[in-house]
Design a protein around this nucleic acid. Structure first.
Lengths: 364, 364
DNA sequence: AGAAAAAACAAAACCGGTTTTGGAAGCAAT
DNA sequence: ATTGCTTCCAAAACCGGTTTTGTTTTTTCT
């Protein structure tokens, strides 16, 4: 194979463009850049010609001088259960739409852990491939945020950490959502409500637990009647196993509030395998709004995520930060929307009676 | 806010680096570029110093001169049911890994249709943001491929079109997989096997149908005993509706081979709602290997996708094309792997008996 | 030993823009 | 009429590399 010569794309260059106009490069550049020392007449002429001839500056060359590349990055930490859920695709779609509307693009990379993500950040910064970052799935103590804050690179987090004071973030009010979930169950007459929590190093998990505890306290339920079990991994198996353990307690909960939908789906299995009916014997409430939840029997009561909107919002915030906005002033919290479906309802019997029913079922 | 001055990153520049070495820019650049007109001694010295001082050329500046940016693009066409499935995330992960291993990055954008995707391609090419593209979910007549072929920009398709001759692609042997699916059912004694097809403008759908037809012909089943219904959209509802229609035929099929898992999941609902048992009364076979399939009752027999491997493979191919390989010689086809689980089995009764059973059930 | 060829490095042009500096023309004030 | 300001445009430097062209030194050949 012959050594390949660059095809010399027929792109119109500033030099050529300005020559056909009979003006200098600098004048044309300044006119298009909106500087003041160009007469209105000349400016008009240049702008018209640019449109007609289809001139647009090469972002690469511009980036070299300006130090910006008009791209932002996101590093997805794999291994999380994110693979199951449509949230990521929707989120990326929203981000992409927002960015494209403002002439930017999105660079995506993956990493095995948040630590590894930091290495990727370092590489991308070093290589000058992005102007800033979007972070997703923040952890309670997040090394990524520490790193980016230190380097001074613009970023926006989707989700907070334990010290969400001086950077830009967008988050759902997880705490309020779980207060609401507990209230829903309490109002329907549940006296014993359990929580299957996610590992507390995920910040959302911490907040959901906090909301759960605030909810039960508010409903006047003793903490002994509000057992909390933490799942080590956020998958269906884990949900099933823990729900089963909860239901086999001497006094089983009549309602189980799950940190994420996958755990709730597992809980369905546990309830069914014990011969019970979801929504009658046991209320199950999830969180994530997985489309799949609508196909479960009965349909899962959960909270909507609307990842697209989040993505768009976060991307917009990041562009603002890149353009100089104060990150500490860009902090947005949004309420989650309850999707009330069919997996919740008044308890068919009390906890004691439920325990009895379970004992009979498993004995049989 | 004051006009912000570029922070002047402390990056080591070629000029500085070569000066500390007492050499010229050109010599240093050529040494690191592996050119021959540098003495071994000098080269060694330069390479060592580069490592010690952490010098790396700025990709932006390099790209400006070379015409390459060390990034490739992928435009995801939204609106497809892709949102449900983990394939996309896994695919992106695979792509990203492969690219990063070779020092490249991935730029992701979204579009509402393949036509719109072409506009995005045009913009990204014009803006010189990528060196090539990865296409996913090819259609039978794909405008994206026509466009990219005409412009001469390197690309690799994940999936073929109807005329897969002169470009690089990677595809699963959809046809063979569906022959296998039919054979599986036929060998277990099914005499009447239906296919819920996907819209034929998706190329994989065309090939799966082709495989299905070849399979039934090979099994000696008359086409009257192998009804094909095409789903207008690839979702659960659609699968349920069509499966229901199939089962209410005078002589219902005892096995249903579905083009994708989502349709199969819908078929489960139809079977169950008619009081039948999946895997006994009716065999259901899917395709996609959605993790969710393993949690259905009974577990869904389907074909594995392993999106990560595909992504990695496709990315590698693209880099080869960018480096000058002949696209027409890069065409890889891979066999799908059957995940034999519990939704298939010998028919509990003949088609006539099944019709009877269904009639009783719906009457009751 | 002298000419030709090869080796090793340096200087300068270039990629395609932006930004700083410079300079001519036009007008008001002294 | 000279000085002093603006206004508007052009020249040149710069961003940080790569590549082409030049030059000096060393080696090889007759």
């Amino acid at each position: 194979m012959e050594k390949q010569v660059a095809p010399k794309k027929g792109k119109l260059t500033l030099k050529e463009f300005s020559e056909t106009l009979g003006l200098s490069k600098s004048t044309v550049s300044r006119a298009l850049g909106g500087y003041s020392d160009v007469s209105p007449k000349t400016r008009k002429k240049i702008e018209t010609a640019a449109r007609d001839l289809g001139y647009a500056p090469d972002p690469l060359a511009r980036g070299l001088k300006r130090g910006r590349v008009e791209s932002v990055g996101i590093v997805i930490v794999r291994g999380s259960p994110a693979l199951y859920d449509p949230f990521l695709s929707e989120f990326l779609d929203g981000v992409s739409r927002s960015l494209n509307a403002r002439g930017r693009d999105l660079l995506v990379s993956t990493a095995g852990s948040t630590q590894e993500a930091v290495d990727v950040y370092r590489r991308l910064i070093e290589a000058r491939k992005v102007d800033g970052f979007i972070l997703s799935r923040t952890e309670t103590h997040d090394p990524r945020i520490a790193f980016l804050r230190d380097t001074g690179v613009p970023f926006v987090a989707h989700g907070r950490t334990d010290a969400p004071d001086d950077y830009a973030w967008f988050d759902i009010d997880n705490e309020a959502a779980f207060v609401e979930a507990v209230n829903l169950a309490a109002q329907q007459g549940h006296k014993k409500i359990a929580h299957i929590a996610a590992p507390p190093h995920m910040n959302f998990a911490r907040l959901r637990l906090k909301g759960f505890l605030r909810g039960v306290a508010g409903a006047g339920i003793a903490s002994a009647d509000a057992p909390v079990h933490t799942a080590s991994s956020l998958d269906i198996e884990s949900g099933e196993e823990i729900a089963r353990r909860l239901l086999l307690l001497p006094e089983p909960p009549t309602a189980i509030v799950c940190a994420v939908d996958l755990l709730a789906i597992g809980a369905y299995s546990a309830v069914k395998s014990l011969g019970l009916t979801v929504g009658q014997d046991v209320t199950i409430i999830g969180y994530d709004g997985l489309p799949f939840g609508a196909y479960l029997d009965p349909q899962l009561t959960t909270f909507d995520q609307s990842g697209g909107d989040h993505g768009a919002q976060v991307a917009d915030m990041l562009l603002d930060v890149i353009e100089g906005a104060d990150p500490a002033k860009l902090q947005i919290i949004k309420q989650a929307k309850l999707l009330k479906r069919a997996s919740n309802g008044p308890p068919a019997q009390s906890a004691e009676e439920l325990a009895c029913k379970i004992a009979c079922g498993t004995a049989a």
